[in-house]
Design a protein around this nucleic acid. Structure first.
Length: 198
DNA sequence: AGCACGATTAACT
DNA sequence: GTTAATCGTGCTC
């Protein structure tokens, strides 16, 4: 029996803390009897209406309303006319915030991920937010689901400890028309050489 | 109703 | 380094 999902309390905290601590956790997608899983290696924090890089910067809309809901749920959005991206909602209900899952290191179901990604090789399978969703078959169907419910086909479990010395912070990717200071906040968290921890 | 743009990716020079 | 792909969303008219 696999480890149970992380509890709601894990996500009901400051967004940058959750973003940091999600590194090393395991993202699991159950599909047709298979488990597709990977170690989370890159995240970004998006925190509230005052964060002008966050989708909630202009208030609550149909698209971003899940971020205003309870912590531990999935916020899955569609962008650039073709890509899905997966976030974990953080903080208390009513406060719009989430952590974008930007990269994972595949640990099981790699062959299925390759098929989903239409890639002949296992190289660079899940090193981008939209690549993860393609590899794990995550679409808008999952928007709003509870990641902490054992019945969910998408959840996050305890993984490996990642020491601070292996984590690099940097500014968030893709915020091209976002004013300072938000464009340069060090809210991207990344662990390199995760395989040395296995 | 029209329009500009996006928490991206792959392919290209 | 640059750019096309492709369309939902939110803003303006």
């Amino acid at each position: 029996m696999a480890a149970p999902p992380l509890q709601t309390g894990f996500f009901d905290r400051e967004t940058v803390i959750v973003a940091r601590e999600l590194l090393g956790k395991i993202l699991v997608r159950r599909i047709e009897g298979n488990s597709l899983a990977g170690i989370i290696t890159e995240t970004e924090a998006y925190n509230g209406e005052t964060d002008l890089g966050c989708h909630a910067k202009s208030g609550k809309t149909k698209r971003n309303c899940v971020m205003y809901g309870p912590p531990g749920h999935a916020y899955v959005y569609f962008t650039y006319g073709m890509h899905w991206c997966l976030n974990c909602v953080t903080r208390e209900e009513g406060f719009p915030a989430a952590v974008l899952i930007r990269a994972i290191q595949p640990i099981s179901g790699i062959e299925i991920m390759r098929v989903n990604r239409k890639k002949l090789e296992a190289l660079r399978l899940t090193d981008g937010p939209a690549k993860i969703c393609q590899a794990l078959s995550i679409t808008g169907f999952f928007n709003g689901i509870d990641l902490c419910n054992m019945e969910s086909d998408l959840f996050i479990t305890r993984g490996i400890d990642v020491p601070d010395s292996m984590i690099k912070t940097s500014s968030r990717i893709g915020l091209n028309n976002v004013p300072e200071p938000w464009q340069s906040l060090p809210w991207r968290f990344r662990v390199e050489q995760v395989e040395t921890l296995l």
